[in-house]
Design a protein around this nucleic acid. Sequence first.
DNA 1: ACCTGAACACCGTTCAAGT
DNA 2: ACCTGAACACCGTTCAAGT
Lengths: 214, 214
Amino acid sequence: MARPRKPLLSRDRIVEAAGALVDTEGLEAVSTRRLAAALGVSGPSLYNHFRTKDEILDAVADAVSARVDLSMFDGGGTDWRGALHAWAHSYRDALADHPNIVPVLARGPGRRPAGLRLADVVFGAMTAAGWPPAQATRIGALMRYFILGSAVASFARGFVDDRTAYDPADYPHLGQAHLLAERGREVDEGAFETGLTALLDGLGLQYEALKETA
Amino acid sequence: MARPRKPLLSRDRIVEAAGALVDTEGLEAVSTRRLAAALGVSGPSLYNHFRTKDEILDAVADAVSARVDLSMFDGGGTDWRGALHAWAHSYRDALADHPNIVPVLARGPGRRPAGLRLADVVFGAMTAAGWPPAQATRIGALMRYFILGSAVASFARGFVDDRTAYDPADYPHLGQAHLLAERGREVDEGAFETGLTALLDGLGLQYEALKETA
DNA sequence: ACCTGAACACCGTTCAAGT
DNA sequence: ACCTGAACACCGTTCAAGT
């Protein structure tokens, strides 16, 4: 075929196909050859548009970050608690839609524009709300820990759906751990909300202490 | 050589060598052939002791989990807050010593004995302290999110040490983001302690509310 | 039982060749 | 500029052969 008069590929088409492959078959199932086949081209063609396979996966991860709502930080920052709460849920929802790419996302904002923008907006909103810069940095980091942690370390997904794996003699309190795989979504959603509320309540206490000494 | 009269390998030797390789060269650098070479055998020999490469990595991850201190939960459970605080730090320290294996650990307790034991002990201690079972499950999950998240989504490790990657026009608040890679440890430690304190403070409020209605 | 080399079906990536 | 097939240096895993 050689060069077609109209390009067969584009970065966007590649990212879209890679995202679909990650979602349906998992991160480990993505190879350059399989991805290329899904796009109707041969493996090396991808290298005309991306330098490495990792760059493609970074772009897929960034597309997920880009779908996180940030509009709640527009207001100028009086209700920083409410904004963080809404943002955390939007972030979590985006990750829940594409759980297989989360390990790539967790590698850090790196050079991904949407990931950086997200960190930037949160930092800006917290300083605008009156948090000192060092604390604003910490809040951005700890929210990141909790939200990405909830996606990457999902409690339920971690248990095996096989009761022989959990002998009550070894784990007296996990007798029904095999139930967790079934009820996984409930546990993860409850734990996320409980943790998020606790986190924001605790930060609220620190914020009050901050305002008193000021 | 064929079969030696004394086995060249054992599961423990393989896990130890794999852990060292993960620590020094990273998860992606571990191949069965490289690991076997480090042990002075040929690649397929490993399959006499483990069924897959993933099982070897799971064993490495479990060895890290096994080093997390759980003794703070022995007391019967009056000071559940203090116990969680000490445990979280012990857990984080163990992960910080072996950051490259964390993605494997985050896959969940699965069938790894030490990971299961850890989940079991925390659940038992929380119920002993008076938390209802559903809440105890959530606390185990949310602590896991935060602690594994802090290791896998380390804020500082995520930024690139190259200031050209962060144009101030794009990210007005990240002007000094390139500094974060250098000061990374400080940021991560501060964020971890701030978040952990907030989390425990917030749970403390929920615990008080629980006792009042009881 | 536990090791070996050969072999299978894959990888990511490079590169000269084609238009 | 953008695609191709061939090729390189790897993979994880299986298996018959050796002791």
